[in-house]
Design a protein around this nucleic acid. Structure first.
Lengths: 336, 336
DNA sequence: ATCACCAATGTAACCGGTTACTTTTTTTTG
DNA sequence: CAAAAAAAAGTAACCGGTTACATTGGTGAT
């Protein structure tokens, strides 16, 4: 790999001049500029980003940290992040935290010198972790898809509790009263908020909360399948399932189908996310859309803005919307 | 962010000594070492990776470039890549090429200064692109999941043609003769190889190739759905579908189900990949497993090896294996 | 006490760029 | 045509580390 010195020699000028040509700033005679360009071309020269970053203290890079690469949103999330970053001519570095908070914490600290800002989509870090990071890091953080209790972060979040409320209300409207719940991880704010949505909806409808109707999953199809099997094995009656994401809802769908239970005739199912695959199952899944693409766009763009200017912290809140398909039926027609 | 100079001042030693302590090389008196450590701790110091990389010409980073973030393998691919990299204490930088060969090419060149080796999982780059990259780059490349015509690259690939052959043989065994084919992108070696598999299998079985039975998709569910709709609309008879990946097979399944055609009673469907979701559809999809996790592990480990030593180029070839589930039935029992 | 040797530490150049400041060259102006 | 102003180019310090080499100080052998 050729360096700026090779270009200097070939073009017969100093480093400063080459640098001026590269960056298009300062005064350079047209003929000199052309010489330098042709020298660069001849050598296949491209500036070393590391050296540039070190000299300017600007990396033109956004770090994106996710707790785990196999989350369901990651297709859309990464795609949009990459698109937004490219649009602003920033490099995007994506790293995962292996679902291990300590490792993830370490990864983010490591990223500090390599990025101008970080977007954090974390499931495993606690609020305290994030708080500590915020104090420790000299680069701005944008927290994505997580409701932070205090307003001291830049964040782009989703109204988790409302998402469940929307589903519950929809099911109530259809006459459902015995509604099972398949949660996600309960060790983080998202899971807790969604469960609150479930509980509060029941309370608002004056229906007793029954612990037996709640099973815990981990957001993948398999755990949804297993949770549903448990419900069935325990002989609990329910006419509908609220799963905390589409994957688990589809896993539950499989469990019911396998057992010979018709969805939605006998049991209705709902999810959250509007995962692209949900449309391809039969029946197509009724769900609450999580606008991950829009949220990601917002977060990356915010991070990019923060590279160049400081802004007062602001939280963007997104709301879910009910997407009605065929996995829910009225309980009145279902009784048979 | 504190620098090595801050540590020097606080510990009362020179940069060289601090550097020795950081890297654990050279002679340092125990008491000095302790002083330096406590100074580092007090300051929350962590070495700047960029500066280290610039000074040593070693980044301890592996670059992973994918054509597009929303490919179906990326969950497993990224997860394994991250795991293998962490295991070797290397940083992993993941970048996508937005499905644009020129952009992807540029991205890879940019990565040169930031990585010790690159793993390339590209759908859009041509063989010539890769050849040129190979000549131009000073860091080693490992090509993942792509059969390179010549042996001049490190590569980890999959026997694409054989994967289709396996499926065709399976269908022949079950008595199928009229087998439709839903391809992926035909502008790259993978698609071409798989189509060859289809054609050659037909020829080996003395069945005429019919162009009408072949529809082109783009590896996602929607295109599988549409391809299947076309087949149906054109009124072509077929008893089985070979799709070039699971997603499209599942899209086709949806199209058939919707039309009231029973799978596998009336039409059998097969895919390629063994995508985790395939097990959750009804019927569960019969497919050829693509061992993406093992392949990724191999590729990353190879790349890591190549950071430190040059090795003669070697191609690792992986074979698919038939995973029989319920989406294929015998044509004899199917006739009704 | 002298010398050799080795452990411990420091000095300074270097990695590949950027940039404030200085010097040289060219152009403008009276 | 000389002086002033503007343009063009160069010099050298700096970013935050590493490392070859030089220097210092202490130890044991003679």
């Amino acid at each position: 790999m050729s360096t700026i010195l090779d270009v200097c020699k070939l073009a017969g000028v100093s480093k400063a001049t080459v640098s001026r040509v590269i960056n298009g700033i300062g005064q350079v005679k047209q003929s000199t500029r052309e010489n330098v360009f042709s020298a660069m071309k001849e050598l296949g020269y491209r500036p070393n980003r590391l050296a540039q970053a070190l000299a300017t203290n600007k990396t033109h890079t956004i770090g994106l940290v996710v707790s785990d690469f196999d989350g369901i949103h990651f297709g859309l999330l990464l795609k949009q992040a990459a698109a937004s970053a490219e649009f602003a001519k920033k490099q995007l570095i994506v790293t995962d935290g292996h679902n291990d908070p300590d490792y993830e914490y370490e990864v983010i600290l490591q990223l500090e010198a390599q990025c101008d800002a970080v977007v954090l989509y974390s499931r495993t870090l606690t609020d305290e972790h994030i708080q500590r990071l915020h104090e420790q890091l000299t680069i701005p953080i944008v927290v994505l898809n997580r409701n932070m209790p205090e307003q001291c972060f830049h964040s782009v979040s989703f109204e988790q509790e409302a998402a469940v409320t929307i589903l519950m209300d929809h099911l109530f409207e259809k006459g459902h009263q015995e509604i099972a719940c398949i949660t996600g991880h309960m060790d983080n704010p998202t899971g807790k908020a969604r469960l609150n949505g479930y509980k509060n909806s029941l309370q608002a409808a004056s229906i007793d909360f029954k612990n037996d109707l709640v099973k815990h999953g981990v957001y993948d199809m398999k755990s949804g399948y297993q949770a549903c099997k448990e419900l069935l094995n325990e002989g609990i009656t329910f006419t509908a399932i609220v799963a905390f994401n589409d994957c688990m809802a589809l896993g539950a769908l499989k469990a019911l189908t396998e057992t010979g239970i018709n969805v939605p005739e006998q049991v209705s199912i709902t999810g959250i996310d509007n995962d692209p695959v949900s449309e391809f199952f039969t029946p197509r899944l009724t769900t609450v859309g999580l606008p991950i693409t829009a949220m990601t766009k917002q977060a990356i763009e915010l991070a990019i803005t923060l590279c160049d200017e400081t802004k007062p912290t602001h939280s963007y809140q997104y709301k879910g919307q009910l997407i009605e398909r065929e996995s829910v039926s009225s309980v009145y027609t279902a009784k048979n």
